[in-house]
Design a protein around this nucleic acid. Sequence first.
DNA 1: GTTTTGTTTTAGGTCGGCCTAAACACTCGT
DNA 2: ACGAGTGTTTAGGCCGACCTAAAACAAAAC
Lengths: 133, 133
Amino acid sequence: MTDASQYLLVCYLEARADGEPVAPGDVAERLDRSPAATTEMLQRLEQRGYLAYEPYEGATLTAAGRREAESLYDSYVVLAEFFRTVLELEDPDREAIELAGHVSSLVTDRVAETLLESDTEPDDHGGPSLERS
Amino acid sequence: MTDASQYLLVCYLEARADGEPVAPGDVAERLDRSPAATTEMLQRLEQRGYLAYEPYEGATLTAAGRREAESLYDSYVVLAEFFRTVLELEDPDREAIELAGHVSSLVTDRVAETLLESDTEPDDHGGPSLERS
DNA sequence: GTTTTGTTTTAGGTCGGCCTAAACACTCGT
DNA sequence: ACGAGTGTTTAGGCCGACCTAAAACAAAAC
């Protein structure tokens, strides 16, 4: 699961921001995919037990889906932070969403550690620290 | 091209190590794929102009293929180095091969920079520097 | 010069992920 | 209550990436 995890993560992000159920259109737009592709994927994610999908309503994460999504979210936060403060990329969020499903949690954890280290170092970039979770 | 790039990169690595043509079996084993999948992919890569494939012989990179592969290789080297010296992963090579096709060269470049920086810092981990290219 | 062994390829099939176009369903405004 | 408009879903199709099993091949062993 790598492409699918992007949808799951975005569902989670949307749910945080706008609550559930999550409208497929929002997901589609955020991922720059066709509405059709999104519907299809949400149905797939439902089959896999990550969310409940009500046609013309939207997606609601299941417990399993939320667990999975939170894990992805953790990766996403760490990566985005890393991309922003260390690599200074232009669109850290987008790149982080794309990559969150591709990196092992081991990588994420270690990156998080290096971020904490550089946070306590003298030449701090001034960005906000991680907080959360 | 993300899965395909793994094959291309491995072809390049094999070509460096054992010369050309590259036997599909070696590629298959290295990527933990079936021989059939590998044959198929090498044929695909041939269609895309990245290599010449001679049945029962093996693959020989074209100029375009080598160019592409070198770019992947650069990412691979940087990522592997990063995974080894900074994140201290168990199998930095494998993870680097998998990720090389997924990260933008922008990311790679910035990571390379941070590696250079940490190289010149007092608490050097002692790993070898990048050299190459 | 056959046979055997190991590798490679083809055949046939599955699933994931994406698209466009067309059908469908809600929601409003009138 | 109906038709317009917006958003969503279904239908049909395409391509990528993988697999197993069976056929084809090359090279070594006899």
